[in-house]
Simulated scan of single mutants.
Amino acid sequence: MGPLSYEFETADRTRTLWDPALRVGQLYVSLAQGAGGQLGLPTGLTPNERGGADVDLETFRKFTQGLYDAYCSTRHFIMHDLMRGLLLASIVMLENGGGAITRVPEREAGLLTEHDAYQRGMWVED
């Protein structure tokens, strides 16, 4: 039997940022890579030998900030819907690593109304 989850850890492997089900983690990585390619941003996610990903927090912070800035730069509701899940998961994972992005709340178009639900769903033990 193969792995059941897809663990995201800091690059130095001292902290787990998120430990979703295998297919959820794989889908997140695919979406992040696609968005990163579209935005010209490295994700900071590196697949590891344990079947998860190591996360370079500074690169990942820049990626998450770039996603956020792209989200806030448009009022296109379909673009917002397409980006929302990836962006919220990225923000929570970054926060789980002690990081944060620079926010402009008046441009968020309700983005963080689901933040608490994502935070509860992505809870990890310190």
Rank of each mutant, 00 (worst) to 15 (best):
E49D: 13
D69C: 08
A35H: 00
L86M: 08
P47V: 00
G110I: 01
A21S: 02
P47L: 09
R50F: 13
A70Y: 13
Y28K: 04
A70W: 09
R15G: 00
G40Y: 08
Q33D: 15
E9Q: 13
T59P: 03
L41Q: 06
K62V: 13
L39V: 05
E106R: 01
T46V: 10
A70N: 14
R13S: 11
L22G: 04
S90A: 15
T46N: 08
W18V: 06
Y68D: 07
D56G: 12
S30H: 11
A109R: 13
L22D: 12
Y28N: 00
G99H: 04
R75F: 13
A109I: 10
K62W: 08
N96T: 01
E49Y: 05
G97Y: 07
I78Q: 15
V104W: 12
P47Y: 06
G37R: 01
P47A: 12
V104R: 14
L17V: 07
P105V: 03
E58K: 09
G98M: 01
D19K: 09
E108M: 06
A11I: 09
S90H: 10
M83G: 02
L27P: 01
Q26R: 07
L39P: 03
L87K: 08
G51V: 02
A32L: 12
P47I: 06
S73C: 02
L39W: 00
P20A: 05
E108D: 14
E108V: 04
Y6P: 01
F60P: 12
L111M: 12
T64V: 11
G51C: 01
L27F: 09
D81H: 13
T14V: 02
V104D: 14
W18G: 05
T14P: 05
Q38H: 10
A70S: 15
L41S: 08
T16Q: 13
G37Q: 04
V55H: 06
F8P: 10
G25I: 05
T64W: 07
G66R: 01
G40C: 07
F60M: 10
I91Q: 15
A109M: 13
Y28P: 05
G99K: 00
L45H: 03
G37I: 02
L39S: 03
P105A: 03
G85M: 09
G36A: 04
R23I: 11
Y71T: 03
T59I: 11
V24E: 07
M93S: 01
D12Q: 06
E7T: 15
G44T: 03
S5A: 02
E49L: 13
I101H: 07
I91G: 11
E106T: 04
P105S: 05
L31G: 04
T43K: 00
R103S: 06
S90T: 11
S30P: 03
L22S: 12
L31D: 11
L82N: 13
L67K: 05
Y6K: 04
G66D: 04
G66P: 15
G34P: 08
P105I: 07
S5G: 06
D19I: 03
L27Y: 08
E108R: 04
R84F: 04
L17M: 12
R50K: 12
E106P: 00
Q26V: 06
F77I: 15
L111P: 07
T16P: 12
L67Y: 08
E49I: 05
Y6A: 03
L86K: 00
R23F: 15
Y71S: 06
A35D: 01
A11S: 13
A53N: 08
R75S: 15
T46G: 03
